[in-house]
Design a protein around this nucleic acid. Structure first.
Lengths: 350, 350
DNA sequence: TCCGTGAGTTGGAACGATCCAAATGTAACC
DNA sequence: GGTTACATTTGGATCGTTCCAACTCACGGA
């Protein structure tokens, strides 16, 4: 719990130093720092001069201890190297920064074990809340024991497994997954494809299940049959998608198109196809999810569902800030719309 | 200095609660938490049971206050949405996490004003050190007044303007900029190009100046003249690079190739060329710097200098951890090698 | 019996801020 | 002159932990 890992810190100047330096009490200096109207103009000026002179730095940790408040928010994402999460984190940090909060960063690499460890470590620093994008297969029970029942949480992108009563009090920001992939699938069908696969992600993540459901919905609505081997599960990373590409073609009836869990997976699939001598956007149609910056620049440019991750980051931060302002407000669930962006990877059936 | 921005925090269980709960003193509980060999096995077991029972969470802020230590490190990057920095941040966070430190995130958007603000805010949270990738045009003097003279700093990627005595005590992790762009330029020359531009970045950043110098070196070594309008300055973002592309072709002697400040700029240039009806990798040769994931997947794939940003992140974190272990050690400057990766964007002169 | 020893435990003062009730000084009023 | 009102200022307790010197207790040796 209290593992050793700490850095020695140089003696800093404190409130008392300033107080002594200009012959007032600590309380007065404190009032000056917080811009209280109670202090006399003249005193204030003297104190402020002394603050500058000694190069005083406010110790927010001490203040937070006394006031039983917090001025940081923990942000836990799956993988910062995924541009989707990088943009999301940038949006979160931007908005939190404007509100005077600092972002404590943590990343899980889609491992629930690491998620537990990271949450445990972040919690000890006393954040005022958590923005969490759960790892695949993460359980509400475990997250709850790691962070306790009273810390505000905003869930992003995925639900946790195993519902609990407390869990209902958490705010959530989800993407419009099912309608999104349904739309993508319908787009492929409209372009003449009949044998369409769903590629990537693991079914123990709610986002994957929802996106898969949208695909199934569209297929059934169009009266199309789905072969079992058209569902290939992968870790949602590019590298694992490349590795898993061959599985798509192992059964009898070969697909001519695939709806992918996200852009990382879609870009991996494009690469995997290439290794089999297939060119995405000509021999095989691909759609993604997220619209990361790369999507518009890949070969071929990727048809995908735009999620505006930076805006989502700002939104998640706003949700948390709203919760801090009003802890009693009912839990809100926001479903952010997604938009189909058609590019060249979703070619018509040739 | 002490602006209001704080979240109410639920009453947490403390050392005293545990102590009361099992009839020992606070001091003993504290010893148990820190795994001291002084406490009796039997007592320890009782205390640990009580810790679990009450769901105790260690308050590291309070401990840090008393011990005058810190368990966080501030990481300030230019733009998290740039995959180069995202990977870098991921590497930093990874290594810091393993060492039991938590990462305080800040981002400047290449603005020195925001840099000052972000540093000021992060400092108040009492990090044990700072890893800083300076904004373009950032001055040592300003950074120094923002963070004080005694906090360990690792500079990454760029030098600050205006040297100061204290500044010499900071560790630095730089990229092998000049030899890198020299190599890239020589590569273009070897492929038959004679009219080669240097595109992107602003000359008030040291990294830009160095990369530009490498280019000049190679040109001069080959006896090639450089036209003034072949130097186009931009903010190192994709969007600004697109905007600035026309400037390359405004003078009399049109270039047939460009060495770019980084990959973001190179990808922007490719787009900008496209808008003029030029195809990079066929009508015009382009090289980048960084080798972000996108570089291998762009149209055409980008010839660039690989910097392995994630490894650089780990390295920066290691430098800072080493400094914390031994504050007296002489300041180290590490220059990370870069490697030319030849892809299709650097086509031979047609 | 007394003393020394070592293992285990503990009260109280820090750390640097904030809160609160109370003190101070001054001016105004009757 | 005495009282009240108001504007400022202030000591001391407090937040949750760690440090330190001191304490208790059982045991063994002289």
């Amino acid at each position: 719990m209290a593992t050793e890992s700490s850095a020695p810190v140089h003696r800093k100047t404190t409130l008392s130093d300033i107080a002594a330096g200009c012959g007032v009490s600590r309380a007065t200096v404190s009032l000056v720092l917080r811009g209280s109207p109670l202090v006399n103009k003249h005193t204030r000026a003297r104190v402020e001069e002394e603050l500058r002179r000694q190069g005083y730095v406010y110790n927010r940790a001490a203040a937070n201890l006394r006031r039983r408040t917090s001025s940081s928010i923990a942000l836990v994402v799956n993988e910062l190297a995924n541009p989707f999460f990088a943009e999301f984190a940038a949006g979160v940090d931007e908005t939190l920064g404007e509100a005077g909060f600092v972002t404590l960063l943590g990343s899980t690499g889609e491992s629930t074990t690491r998620e537990q460890a990271v949450l445990g470590s972040l919690i000890e620093h006393g954040p005022g809340g958590i923005i969490l994008s759960p790892a695949e297969g993460s359980e509400a029970r475990n997250v709850l024991t790691a962070i306790g029942a009273h810390l505000p949480v905003v869930l992003f992108n995925r639900e946790l497994g195993g519902r609990l009563p407390q869990y209902a009090h958490w705010d959530r920001l989800m993407l419009d997954n099912r309608p999104g992939t349904r739309q993508a699938t319908e787009h492929l069908i409209a372009r003449g494809h009949r044998r369409i696969a769903f590629f990537g992600g693991h079914d123990d993540a709610s986002s994957t299940r929802e996106r898969h459901a949208g695909y199934v919905e569209a297929m059934q609505a169009a009266g199309l049959k789905i072969e079992p081997h058209w569902r290939v599960q992968t870790t949602p990373t590019r590298i694992d998608a490349v590795r898993a590409t061959p599985a798509l073609f192992e059964g009898g009836s070969k697909p001519t198109a695939a709806v992918c869990y996200n852009d990382a997976v879609a870009l991996g699939l494009i690469l995997g196809l290439h290794q089999r001598g297939l060119q995405a956007g000509r021999d095989f149609a691909v759609t993604g999810f997220d619209d990361i910056a790369e999507a518009s620049m890949s070969v071929p440019p990727l048809t995908t569902l735009s999620t505006a991750p930076r805006a989502r980051g700002r939104q998640a931060a706003e949700l948390l800030l709203a919760r801090l302002r009003d802890p009693q407000a009912p839990a809100s669930t926001v479903i952010a719309p997604v938009e189909l962006v058609v590019r060249e990877s979703s070619c018509p059936l040739s």
